[in-house]
Write a protein that binds this DNA or RNA. Structure first.
Lengths: 352, 352
DNA sequence: TTGTATGCGTTATCAG
DNA sequence: CTGATAACGCATACAA
């Protein structure tokens, strides 16, 4: 089934068929209809391979997900991202190629270089900005359109989509805890290589300082629940442990929550916990997790729309506006532990 | 950068280059080396578009995931599957296209028909067999190679990978509960449309009956945690509630666990809970979830290897053998509640 | 408004 | 063992 068959059936030239299907050139409505009908009858659709060869465009985009073994498997915001992207591409008949990059087993520059020379996609959607991330420049120098989900770590002009500020929700989180009377609020972050988490932790520090408190933070080697649990253990073993813990990700919060409970702490009575991300699982934890929902599905849609626009596809990114992250208050946060029956909330002086 | 450039640099014809890169025909080692060197220097790789056009092969496979809105977003075994597949394809330079099928918004036959006429992939990996599933025949009639993760509902010869039996782990689960002294074990299943879950529930019934007990089961409208929670509520509100609940999926178990706890039940003291699937999150729930780990990552690898073999790629599926599901006993299961201090385990007569 | 001719980058066939 | 040539299916420039 080729364009020639359709042309023959419609009694026209292949060129005419092509023009109709690309709404280029001009074809009389009558013959256009005849052509469409013929194509329909033959169940014909332009061959992506031929089109790709002819136009050097694949109508496919690639999504690169970093796969830090321990984390991707646990957090599901990536699934939502994926889902959102596919939802935008599919109706437009664009393909979505999935690439997993495993830092542990491959060299990054080489990885992207191969991706580019493979020429399977017209553009790449990236995520997980790192401090000093060389990918934006690299891809630009390789002439591969790229779109970032997140914010570049420098002034790089790479098109991207992210909430503004990127750490949106952190200040609200702190305020929420302050409102509940918490004065000893600790932050549990991961490694400082990922940029967005870094911004969040800085934002946390600013918010806490603005309230006249001294920020306390602990950092772990990765974002896995296991290391977050260990960090929690150490924090809570102190003489004057925090009354609230803010985790850099939901995955960490889950690990921390479990650790706290295994230490006999009641959440939220003895300790309030907040995550970040909005994993759907949060709602089903015990207690349900207070977190900042980043609306990953919508984020994926926005990114896909942005990428399509970047590639010249007729799409209005405004149709897929990014929803700002929002603090979702569930039951893992509550009034700070009282002292002699008086909620800290009502005392006039901060606990420290 | 085309094959011609490489040929020129190596001082040979394009055909020679092609032969070297496809290890077809015969080329003297000397010139072959020269050609490889030239290709390396020019950073050349065959254009997938041109190859696809010429050979009508895309070196890409598609993975179709059914997306029952509420479920995909919660359970992560799909992520693991994806990850496993990609891990096998990437090193061989095959692409992985992701397709999401949303039953609610599209007609299935039409969906697959489009997928086939689009000719973007050489084969399709399917999952989530349904009773009466028409896809295997459909794709066969459309001459699209398909590989199933799971088991066909009928005698369909579609190549597939699954544990044997498909419900492996269920009997072990029941035995585990019996060993703990449970006699009132209820099953919480989802809709009867999905075939593998159906097999599991049947296996549950058989195992329980074999122990001389009467199987009790409740079914919900979908596999979401919300409906599983509601089912749990009803089950536990009975006069003589079960002492153990077996859920059809981990996602359901999570919903059920939360519900039970909100009813004041202590898990596992008052109620034992078992899931199925092996979601990585299970380890971090409170208490950690006893479940049957299906090794989804490995399952994905096996499927990818099977699909590649089916498509004639030189790969030995034996290199990616399927690991059988295994019961992972964590803390959501324990001795059945005692009567007057005596564990049911030690009484000679069953509770009912 | 429509048709013709050409080339996109490869590989398979066949002749050398 | 190697090279010339045609064809894969389509879209574009240009001629009609």
């Amino acid at each position: 089934m080729t364009i020639a068959d359709v042309a023959a059936l419609a009694g026209v030239s292949p060129a005419a068929v092509s023009k109709v299907f690309n709404s280029t050139g001009s074809i009389s409505p009558a013959t256009a209809a005849r052509i469409r009908e013929a194509a329909e009858k033959l169940n014909w659709t332009p061959s992506p391979a031929a089109v790709a060869l002819r136009q050097s465009k694949t109508k496919a985009i690639g999504l690169v997900l970093n796969r830090p073994r321990a984390t991707l498997d646990l957090d599901m915001t990536d699934s939502l991202l994926l889902s959102g992207i596919e939802t935008v591409l599919a109706p437009r008949e664009w393909g979505l190629l999935l690439y997993l990059f495993d830092r542990a087993s491959q060299e990054q520059v080489e990885f992207y270089r191969r991706l580019v020379t493979a020429r399977r996609v017209d553009g790449l959607i990236l995520a997980n900005t790192e401090v000093g991330d060389p990918r934006f420049e690299l891809l630009r120098s390789l002439h591969m359109p790229a779109f970032l989900i997140g914010t570049p770590w420098n002034e790089d002009p790479i098109p991207h989509v992210d909430s503004s500020p990127p750490h949106a929700g952190v200040a609200e989180t702190v305020q929420h805890l302050l409102d509940l009377g918490h004065r000893r609020i600790a932050y549990v972050g991961g490694p400082p290589t990922l940029y967005l988490p870094l911004l969040r932790r800085e934002a946390f520090g600013r918010s806490v300082e603005a309230a006249g408190l001294t920020p306390a933070a602990t950092f772990t080697a990765d974002h896995s629940p296991a290391t977050a649990a260990e960090a929690t253990r150490r924090l809570m073993a102190q003489d004057t442990p925090p009354t609230a813990l803010v985790f850099e990700t939901d995955t960490m919060a889950i690990g921390g929550m479990r650790q706290a409970k295994s230490m006999g702490l009641n959440i939220p009575r003895d300790l309030s916990i907040v995550g970040y991300g909005g994993t759907p699982m949060g709602e089903w934890l015990e207690p349900p997790l207070t977190t900042v929902d980043r609306h990953s599905f919508n984020r994926g849609q926005a990114a896909a729309a942005g990428m399509m626009a970047l590639l010249g596809e007729p799409i209005d990114p405004e149709d897929h506006p990014l929803r700002q992250p929002e603090l979702v208050v569930r039951s893992s946060t509550a009034l700070a532990p009282t002292r002699e029956g008086v909620p800290t909330l009502l005392t006039s002086s901060a606990a420290e």
